[in-house]
């Protein structure tokens, strides 16, 4: 599965990085970047938590 951050909405609160540091990193520009092409099965739960915690609800699975 792929995951995407809507960079127009992202405000750099870094909740996603806290929930799934393997998948998200917030750079110095305060925008979260997805680090992996495909999210491995064992990280899906962490990414779901990141999606839930994102203050701006800017993260979504790519269907």
């Amino acid at each position: 599965m792929k995951v995407k951050v809507n960079t127009d909405m992202c405000e750099g609160h870094a909740k996603c990085q806290g929930a799934a540091p393997e998948v998200f990193r917030v750079g110095d520009d305060d925008v979260s970047v997805v680090l992996v092409e495909e999210v491995s099965k064992d990280l899906e739960e962490k990414v779901n938590r990141a999606i839930r915690l994102c203050p701006r609800q800017a993260i979504a699975w790519v269907k």
């Binding site: 405000e11 609160h13 938590r49 839930r52 915690l53 203050p55 701006r56 609800q57």
Partner: peptide
């Protein structure tokens, strides 16, 4: 500690940080 004291979504607290 996934509290929502700052709200969530479109109107998430502007000044949380």
């Amino acid at each position: 500690n996934d509290h929502l004291a700052f709200g969530i979504g479109e109107h998430f607290c502007l000044g949380s940080g």
